[in-house]
Amino acid sequence: MSFKPIGPVKTKVTGKIEDLPALLLGGAVFNQQFNENPESLPAEEILRIGFNHGIRAIDTSPYYGPSEIILGNALKTLKEDFPRDTYYIVTKCGRVKLDDFNYSPAAIRASILRSLERLNTNYLDLVYLHDIEFVDEDGIYGALKELRKLKNEGIIHNFGISGYPVDFLYHIATKVTTIPEIGQLDAVLSYSNFNLQNETLRDYIDKFYKEAKLKKLLNGSILSMSLLRSGTTHAFHPASLELKSASKDVAKLTAGKGVELADLATRYAIGEFLPHGSTVLGVSNIAELENAIGQYWNAVEKKVDDERLLNDVKLAFGSHLNETWASGIAHDI
């Protein structure tokens, strides 16, 4: 692979969350939900190649099964070449299993202490409350107060929230600025809301930065959890059958033009979101990582003219553009 790095390599990171690299290596793929045998994935080589190309940050979670353990072992193996202060570690807390959440302060603290051990580190650069829409607001605020305490103790350096409904993420991010024990969040991670099919997040970007006084906004799942690719959509995907069918029609359309839908979607999401924040990549093998880096440079250097095809794709999605799905419990906002 002959791509130039997207950022500095093997130098100390600043530690400031605003300076996260443009791309992060996502850890959700190291999980049985996405891969039948995640332990067999080449985690060490993915990290080595990613770090050598300036992608000096990982994003994981205890909810992702063995992900933290797999990545922690890989980081331990790579420590001579990549000391701890040359990359960022981002993880999450609060979501235990599919329908199991524990946002109690004691559970939040215990989860983070376990993550430190699993990831072979004595501090975490950023920790999110995981999928906040499944928990009542009082529980969210209690957990965020504990994260603020952990930040004050130096155990974590930044904290924030993650989830799917953008309006609820925005509601919480702005509300906590008025709660002295919490204050402004450092970061928010939104997923499946800034991509080729759904750009709901776009209208909230300025609001997050100006009204919630956010330091960093991040975009995850730019292929919308496997929806935007020619391969089979994962069985757990919550999209409507009609949206899944429309996506398959779009994949056939792009294939007819000699373009893989996932490549087009990757170029589009990275290129469009780059001025606003960082993007989390989920790659399961070296080929996917190399392709993602290639698509990054295609987007940045505008090596591919996608305008006409993008217009065709949006027409093909039709009424399914910006279609979302229900996630979490009902909140009065």
Rank of each mutant, 00 (worst) to 15 (best):
G94E: 10
Y88R: 01
Y128I: 08
S111D: 12
F134R: 10
S115R: 01
L124D: 01
E133I: 10
R114F: 10
S111C: 12
D81M: 12
L129F: 06
L98P: 05
D85C: 03
R95F: 11
I132K: 03
A107L: 04
R148D: 12
G160T: 10
K145P: 03
T86R: 06
P105C: 06
G163W: 02
E146K: 13
L144G: 06
G163S: 11
I89L: 15
G94W: 01
G139C: 08
F82T: 06
A143T: 03
N158K: 11
R114G: 08
S111K: 09
L147A: 09
I89P: 04
S115I: 03
D81G: 12
I112V: 14
R109L: 01
S111F: 03
I132G: 00
Y141V: 05
K149N: 13
I155A: 12
V135I: 12
E117Q: 14
S162N: 08
V135P: 01
I108C: 09
L126E: 00
T86A: 08
R95D: 13
K92A: 07
A143L: 03
L129G: 01
S115M: 07
Y128M: 03
S115P: 02
G154Y: 05
N120I: 00
K92V: 14
I155N: 13
F82S: 13
Y123M: 09
I89T: 08
G163C: 08
K151D: 09
F82M: 07
D100K: 13
R109P: 02
I112Y: 00
D99L: 02
L150A: 14
L116R: 11
V127G: 02
L119H: 14
S111R: 04
I161D: 08
G94H: 02
R114V: 11
E153V: 13
D136E: 15
R84Y: 08
N158H: 15
E133T: 09
G154K: 07
F101S: 02
R148E: 10
